[in-house]
Computed example of a mutant assay.
Amino acid sequence: MIVVAGEALIDLVPQSRGALAALTPALGGGPYNTAVALGRLGSPVAFCSRVSYDAFGEALLERLRATGVDVAPVQRGSEPTTLAVATVGADGSAAYSFYVEGTADRLFRAPAELPDGTRAVSFGTCSLVLEPGASAYEELLRRSAARGLFTALDPNIRAGLIADPDAYRVRFKSWLPSVSLLKLSEEDAEWLGGTPREWLAAGPGAVVVTRGGDGLTVFTRDGGEYAVPGEPVEVVDTIGAGDTVNAALLHGLAARDALRPEALAALGPDGWADLLGLAARAAAVTCSRAGAEPPYAYELD
C-alpha cells in the first residue's frame, strides 16, 4: 500500500486565452492527482487528507473511490474546498493563484496510524506550506521515516503561497533527512537554490529532476547520474504532469520491490532507465489531454 498525503482541491481551468476566459472546475491538487494516477496504474493506494463536506469535496472523494483509492484515512470538515485558478501559457505550462483562507484541508491533523500494509508515504505541494496543516504533514513525514517507511517528497513549489521564501528553504532542508526519494522540477530546483548532490548529502537515496519535454534525470547517492529523453507529444497542457511522474516512479519502484531506501542503490543504470522511461511515457500521456488526466496501465503497454 502506498499512502499519498496532502491536499485535494478544485482547479478552475480556463477554456480559452485571456483574463476573463470561462473557467471550468476540475478535480486536482498535487497529492490528489498522484493518488488518482497510482490508482489508474493499478497500485494499491490510500489518500490521507482533510476534505470538505461541500459539493466539491464529495466530487473529489467520488473520483478517488471510482479509481480504486482507499479513502478511509480522509478526514472531513465543514469548511469550504480550496480553489486554484490556473492560467495556461502558450506552451501549455500552467501557473496558479489560490483561494485558501479558511479551507478544509488546512486543518488536517496527523493520524495516529496509517493503513495496514503501508510501504510508502508520498508528500508535497501546498499541504507543506499552509499552516496549521503543514506542521501536521511534517510530523507525519518525520514519523513515517522513523518507522522505516519509504518516503517520497515533491515540493512542487507554488511561490505565491510562500510568504517567507528563505524560511521555507530552511524548512525544506530540514525535511531531507526524512526523505527516501526527492522528485522536483528544474524550476523548483532553481527556486530552492540548491543542487541534487547537496540534497543527496542531506539524506535522500535518489533525486529525480524533471526537465519538461527534455526528459528526466536521476542523481543517486553512489555518484550515479542517469537520464532519459522526454516522449514526443503534442502538448495540450502540463497540468498534473509532475504528479503523474511521482505516481509512475512509486508504481515502478513497488513493482520492483524497491520501496526501501537501500533498494534504490541496487537499481543501477538499466533499472533507472526503465523506471524513468515509464515516468516519461506516463507524463506524455497526461500532457496530451486537458487537465490532470493521468494514464491507465494499459495506455503505457
Score class of each variant (00 low, 15 high):
residue 1 M to Y: 13
residue 3 V to T: 13
residue 7 E to N: 13
residue 15 Q to A: 06
residue 22 A to N: 03
residue 25 P to K: 09
residue 28 G to E: 02
residue 29 G to M: 11
residue 36 V to G: 09
residue 38 L to K: 04
residue 39 G to N: 05
residue 41 L to R: 04
residue 43 S to T: 15
residue 47 F to W: 11
residue 53 Y to I: 01
residue 54 D to T: 10
residue 55 A to F: 12
residue 56 F to N: 15
residue 61 L to W: 09
residue 63 R to E: 14
residue 65 R to F: 00
residue 65 R to G: 13
residue 65 R to N: 02
residue 70 D to Y: 01
residue 71 V to K: 03
residue 75 Q to M: 04
residue 77 G to Y: 04
residue 79 E to M: 03
residue 79 E to Q: 15
residue 84 A to K: 02
residue 85 V to P: 00
residue 85 V to C: 10
residue 87 T to P: 00
residue 89 G to I: 08
residue 90 A to F: 09
residue 95 A to V: 12
residue 99 Y to D: 05
residue 101 E to F: 01
residue 104 A to Q: 06
residue 106 R to L: 10
residue 108 F to I: 03
residue 110 A to W: 03
residue 113 E to C: 07
residue 119 R to V: 13
residue 122 S to E: 01
residue 125 T to D: 05
residue 127 S to R: 08
residue 129 V to M: 07
residue 131 E to A: 15
residue 134 A to P: 11
residue 150 F to A: 05
residue 159 A to S: 12
residue 161 L to N: 02
residue 162 I to Y: 10
residue 164 D to G: 02
residue 165 P to I: 08
residue 166 D to H: 08
residue 170 V to E: 14
residue 171 R to Y: 00
residue 172 F to G: 05
residue 172 F to M: 01
residue 173 K to S: 13
residue 185 S to E: 01
residue 190 E to F: 04
residue 194 G to L: 03
residue 195 T to R: 08
residue 195 T to H: 04
residue 202 A to S: 11
residue 203 G to W: 04
residue 203 G to L: 00
residue 204 P to Y: 04
residue 206 A to S: 07
residue 208 V to Q: 03
residue 210 T to W: 14
residue 212 G to Y: 11
residue 220 T to G: 15
residue 224 G to W: 01
residue 232 P to S: 07
residue 237 D to H: 08
residue 237 D to I: 10
residue 251 H to K: 03
residue 251 H to C: 00
residue 264 L to V: 02
residue 266 A to D: 15
residue 268 G to R: 11
residue 270 D to R: 14
residue 271 G to M: 03
residue 274 D to P: 02
residue 281 R to W: 08
residue 282 A to K: 11
residue 282 A to S: 05
residue 286 T to E: 12
residue 287 C to I: 07
residue 295 P to D: 13
residue 295 P to R: 08
residue 297 A to W: 12
residue 297 A to T: 06
residue 298 Y to I: 11
residue 299 E to Y: 11
